[in-house]
């Protein structure tokens, strides 16, 4: 249903690199926390830290504010804005736990992922 045009297929590390490289997202200037991104199958895990809108990738941390669990294709679709995180969550394609409001902030990164 989304009107967003299709973007090039990426891997999760490429998408996260683009998010980090783009730097601060002004609309997230008030947001801080850490996403735990769990990609299944495969058991790959990344930690994306956001400090007042500025994203960085972290090594393993003890604490995350929310975890987002899904397959790689769905994560890329969400990161690129092709798939709506809320409907993916409601459908059961994506499992979110922790701070759901912070999880939804992920949509603010979509414009920078090509």
């Amino acid at each position: 249903m989304s009107t967003t045009p299709a973007k090039r297929a990426l891997t999760v590390p490429e998408a996260l690199d683009q998010i980090v490289a783009a730097g601060e997202v002004p609309s997230l200037r008030r947001a801080s926390g850490t996403y735990e991104i769990d990609i299944e199958p495969g058991g790959h895990r990344w930690f994306l830290k956001v400090d007042h809108g500025r994203p960085t990738l972290e090594a393993e941390t003890k604490y995350s504010d929310c975890s987002i669990e899904c397959n790689e294709a769905d994560f890329i679709d969400i990161a690129q804005g092709r798939r709506n995180l809320m409907t993916a969550f409601m459908q059961g394609r994506v499992k979110c736990s922790g701070d759901l409001a912070f999880a939804l902030d992920l949509r603010h990164f979509a414009p920078v992922v090509q």
């Binding site: 709506n84 409907t87 409601m90 414009p111």
Partner: peptide, 28 residues
């Protein structure tokens, strides 16, 4: 709202009208 989305009548900065959690909303 964060982007232009015709389906949801969404535009950047716009405040929502209604949020639902059922199957029809989930599958768009």
């Amino acid at each position: 709202g964060t982007r232009v989305d015709d389906f949801r009548d969404e535009e950047p900065g716009k405040i929502l009208h209604e949020l639902r959690y059922g199957e029809l909303a989930a599958f768009e």
